[in-house]
Design a protein around this nucleic acid. Structure first.
Lengths: 199, 199
DNA sequence: AAGATATGAATGAATGGTCATTCATTTTAT
DNA sequence: ATAAAATGAATGACCATTCATTCATATCTT
């Protein structure tokens, strides 16, 4: 019903820009409307309320990303290489859209908890991909078979997320994609000294 | 001047409780005042504004923790054991005060970016401890000498933080302290298969 | 020692600015 | 001509902050 209405996407894109450039608190509905070239009231023809804009934004922008991710990763055989691709795609996705990166890493997190629970729902798909990689690695013998899958997932997601957030907070002064290899290396081998330091 | 005024701490403790139990948005100044057994106006004798309560809260509760951390860790010789102690103290600090854990992991993050920058200032001390551990390990040969210290810090902090946040979001259904060993193990050896799986 | 005076901590009702949301009306499409 | 979509001014709820006033305690005066 709403997916192929042009105004729907117009409003979402305007919201990303307004929130990224002015911050969550200054992102009044009327400002988003103006940026979308639409009347305030029009917003409410497409979204239940202001929060719904935020969740929809995340659903639209992240939902398709997870699809792509699943697709690309399914074509790779080793767990280590799957993980490498995950890190690369995650970094690329956000490095190629600074506005979206600011919104997801900083602004969206200012939402209340009820909203964050809904956002977590969207994240579930992403985390399922991580879990799958971990399980694959454990079964193939690439990864430690004694791993706690939940913990491994939390390490992988926590590390990637913290890396991106730091990058954003440092005004994207360096190239995020250059960190793909070292981050992947850290996830596989940790801080400890390891024989196989080459990818 | 303000540190030994009883009302100051009274208000901070009330704020932790009110915010943890009702959420940031429902934590009106008047509610905090009532919980502290104080008039609304009194708050403004001790705090510049509402945000100042939040930052002060974090400064008070976290500042002393970093001091303790530095102290304990300086008495340990190996980097791996230092890291183990860091994880243990971090988990213990939050597992022993659920209200504080909710406030730091969920509620405090709803603050605006200006405020988060101030919060990051407080965190700097904590992150310096992490950096120090990483450098120690690299010098002693315990850790991979090719590590990027910033990335290693982000992995360590990101993993710990994500683990605590997940624990909170799952209503603290399991014992956080039981995760100290596996998390430490993950940080040192990563997901990969490693000879030394015992601590 | 008793009263007079000063201090500043504490109070809480009132204020004022902000914005999300609504809806009567207009415009566009079929 | 009818329905559907869009408009944007008006509304009203919300809540941080203010400030005139109170009150308990300390200090001074005789």
């Amino acid at each position: 019903m709403k997916r192929n209405k042009p105004k729907y996407m117009q409003i979402i894109d305007a919201a990303v820009t307004v929130i990224a450039e002015n911050g969550y608190h200054a992102a009044q509905v009327s400002r988003i409307a103006k940026a979308a070239g639409v009347a305030d009231g029009t917003i409410y023809l497409y979204f239940k309320n202001k929060e719904d804009i935020l969740v929809s934004l995340f659903e639209e922008k992240m939902g398709s990303f997870v699809g792509e991710l699943e697709n690309k990763i399914s074509k790779i055989s080793t767990a280590s290489e799957k993980l490498h691709k995950l890190v690369e795609m995650h970094f690329h996705h956000l490095a190629s859209d600074h506005h979206l990166a600011i919104v997801t890493q900083l602004e969206l997190r200012q939402s209340n908890i009820e909203l964050r629970v809904r956002i977590n729902g969207v994240l579930k798909g992403y985390l399922a991909v991580v879990d799958h990689i971990v399980k694959t690695g454990m079964e193939s013998g690439e990864f430690n078979p004694g791993l706690d899958v939940r913990l491994a997932r939390q390490m992988i997601f926590g590390t990637i997320d913290e890396t991106v957030t730091s990058w954003i907070m440092n005004d994207q002064k360096y190239d995020l994609l250059q960190l793909v290899n070292p981050v992947h290396q850290l996830l596989i081998n940790g801080c400890g000294y390891s024989q196989s330091t080459l990818k």
